[in-house]
Design a protein around this nucleic acid. Structure first.
Lengths: 368, 368
DNA sequence: CTGTTAGCGCATTCAC
DNA sequence: GTGAATGCGCTAACAG
């Protein structure tokens, strides 16, 4: 219902009728285009007109219809946040989701962006799960892809070639120029295996998270590389895929120690839970750090996951992600034109230097 | 760029050109309207035509433009999630944000809804912070308001009268028919004070969270009611507003014990952190549970926050919220027409019965 | 500095 | 069962 006078709208109780720019225009005695100019902070509106229009907009609590805007304009005001798998497959931890929120608020919120989540990654397209519905529908004008990329992922290629700003938190072999910010898991696995080889181990087990993903593949390749360099034969059964269930890690630990006769284990399960590994060891009749050696991986900058480990590997994924999100925000706002690649180096440190927490350093980084 | 043949789009590499229903229509040899009918599952399309159109839609990975749809249709496919204050004012805990996510996924994700967050509640309108931009812009078609409602809140009234489905997680005195799902904080404060009065206390301090909100006001009113019924004079200084900083709780505890000579304290700071209260007591030279009695409040169904407390009050807010979110989803999908009110009863239990966790019961509930 | 016109992609209305 | 015309609210291109 269009308004006939400003008074009928009321300053104290902004009318809930949905206004259009033409309602504003009529009240201000200008054309719709002028209202549009004010809304978009375009120049070439006289200060007096601008003020008058702005005042009416404020008083009515008018906000431009997003759908209509998105049909004409090319502004980018909404970031899609995508989980590449449903949470029951890859449970995102309390800390991680909280961290993500704070970062989104800090980086995109500060720029006035909206955040759109599609929590329904179950819609099957021809290629499997299409997790980027929000992007194709143009609800959002770019996206952040949170979570590992499965090796058979077909959606990421569409996103990559769509022209929308985006960032993944993984590399992806098939798309060398993918925009991502991540950590070199190959290197992390290489460092871990190398460390245990130096201790004289030949049967090194690995609790391998994300086995069907690029991140899992990198674990395998780094591990393999280290063993090959040392002339140790690869035994595939020593690379043990695990899910995020503690029981799975426990069972895999038991299996590696008993069936595979592993004398050392790389815990890159990312569960960051000492209890599961300990329980597996207990069932095998072994004591971690005594009967077998461990290298553990952690995302956390200020803690380790397994005190019994002889060395720890820190995976600075959140730091990489934060850095990348800043760049994504700039790309979004056309402050930079191109995609980027950030790969941070993992840091291995000995258990006896735990107090001196290392600063992670980038390996390569196409943006500097 | 419109397509001239289906082949040129390709099945394996869906074209990234943004298609319209008319592209689909041309390929299928039908009119735009028929494509629209297929998209919206309208009847009166012959099975053969429907299949042909559907197949082309799938092959192109076509998705209807959300902006265009939102201008004509009245479907509701996006829920706004609003934080009534920025996180630096009311920090949402790890657990809470995680819980919220899982619930959103479970309830709205399962229904195929998108979730839109506005993490930029700093835009000032005439009435202060307008946290419902996403709603006014019609990015979303209803919303969940997470967080306490400040007593001077003007936005909630606009939402209430807008006709959009919504739900707050608080009552709001000024709007008796507000749609909400919450817990009776007045009752919780009443039960807490009554419990300490029964132990003979006359100077009962309160660590009062949310003091400038409806939730804080309810704490005060319940407390006051209990004291008045017992004929105890109210000393305002015993009601001590606290923020979510641990140091604030510590300082307030110290103040209540030393300056105000409180002999008992109701901890409804909702910080759920025993260390802060203990530290305040320590600085006052007191030992909690020995030199003074405590009643603590907790949101958690399976733990208590202060083991030293003589009684615990459980605030089943998450249960209330879950229940309400289900109803909001139904309202959203037009399975129910009206707003609703759910108010759950807090439960006080003695420290020695901690193992028997109580089932919270509704106080009133306009939906059954 | 300001206004007019056209059209974005879709759904609604009405015609066939 | 199907299609043509119309308009949602806004902005780009053009005109004055």
């Amino acid at each position: 219902m269009p308004l006939d006078s400003l008074e009928s709208a009321g300053v104290d109780t902004p009318s809930m009728a949905k206004h259009t720019i033409y309602d504003i225009a009529r009240l201000a005695g200008v054309s719709g285009k002028t209202v549009s100019r004010v809304l978009n902070n375009e120049p070439s509106v006289s200060p007096a007109t601008r003020d008058r229009v702005a005042r009416i907009i404020d008083e009515l609590g008018y906000q431009p219809h997003h759908g209509a805007r998105s049909m004409r304009g090319q502004q980018r005001d909404c970031v899609g946040v995508i989980f590449s798998a449903p949470m029951n497959k890859w449970p995102v931890s309390h800390q991680q989701i909280h961290w993500l929120f704070l970062e989104l608020e800090r980086i995109f919120g500060a720029r006035g962006k909206f955040i759109c989540f599609d929590l329904n990654p179950y819609t099957n397209g021809i290629e499997g799960v299409d997790y980027a519905r929000a992007l194709w529908q143009q609800r959002c004008n770019g996206c952040l892809i949170h979570g590992a990329l499965q090796l058979n992922d077909k959606v990421i290629a569409r996103i990559h070639s769509s022209g929308y700003p985006y960032m993944a938190l993984n590399r992806f072999e098939e798309i060398p120029d993918l925009c991502f910010s991540s950590v070199d898991y190959d290197e992390a696995a290489y460092l871990s295996a190398q460390r245990l080889i130096r201790s004289g181990h030949k049967r090194i087990g690995m609790l391998q998270a994300f086995h069907d993903t690029q991140a899992g593949k990198e674990r395998r390749s780094g591990y393999t590389r280290a063993l090959e360099e040392a002339g140790i034969e690869i035994d595939d059964s020593l690379i043990r895929p695990v899910s995020f269930a503690g029981s799975d890690v426990t069972a895999a630990t038991l299996y590696l120690l008993l069936e595979c006769k592993a004398s050392a284990i790389i815990d890159c399960s990312m569960l960051e839970d000492p209890a599961s590994v300990r329980e597996g060891a207990r069932r095998a009749g072994r004591i971690p750090g005594k009967d077998f050696e461990l290298v553990d991986w952690t995302y956390s900058p200020d803690s380790i996951s397994l005190p019994e480990a002889c060395a720890h590997v820190r995976i600075p994924l959140r730091e990489a992600a934060s850095e990348g999100m800043e760049l994504l925000a700039q790309w979004f706002d056309r402050e930079r034109e191109e995609p980027f690649q950030i790969l941070r180096r993992p840091e291995l440190f000995e258990a006896d230097t735990v107090r001196e927490l290392p600063i992670a350093t980038p390996i390569f980084d196409t943006i500097r």
